[in-house]
């Protein structure tokens, strides 16, 4: 797929150190931490958006991303640096099947059955939709 890319700039690697660097530079407000499934390249992209408020006023932000192996995705937790990241990492674990190392509590937020295929992977079928006949097929 062309034209679909992550945020510009080099990958943040190693992940937790790269995040720690930005947090130390004052970017300590977590705005977004999520994942993007990229089955075509066999990767799961992790995206983070950090914000800081300079004393002079205004807002400064920084985008970071990294790529994980889709077959066995492993992510270092940054919850120690940014407590707000805890639930985002739980969600990434639950919805994309990413193992998050060093996370204090990876209990699922929504799913009853964590053994089910990760729902936000592109190739996970939506069972309810497969089972439901399309109402538009009538007549």
């Amino acid at each position: 797929m062309s034209g679909v890319t992550g945020p510009p700039g080099p990958l943040w690697e190693p992940w937790a150190d790269a995040v720690a660097q930005r947090v130390a530079a004052g970017f300590d407000r977590l705005d977004l931490l999520t994942a993007v499934d990229r089955p075509a390249s066999g990767e799961i992209e992790i995206v983070i958006h950090l914000v800081r408020r300079p004393e002079a006023g205004g807002l400064e932000d920084v985008w970071g991303h990294t790529l994980l192996d889709r077959a066995a995705p492993m992510l270092e937790s940054v919850t120690g640096l940014l407590p707000a990241a805890a639930w985002h990492e739980r969600e990434i674990h639950e919805m994309f099947g990413v193992q998050v190392s060093g996370h204090p509590d990876l209990r699922p937020l929504l799913l009853l059955d964590v053994a089910s295929p990760p729902p936000l992977r592109k190739d996970t079928p939506l069972v309810a939709r497969v089972d439901t006949p399309w109402p538009g097929a009538r007549r």
Binding site: R129, P135, R138
Partner: peptide
């Protein structure tokens, strides 16, 4: 019915 993205209309 046909355009509804989540199929919530039935006629």
């Amino acid at each position: 019915v046909k355009e509804c993205p989540d199929w919530c209309i039935h006629i």
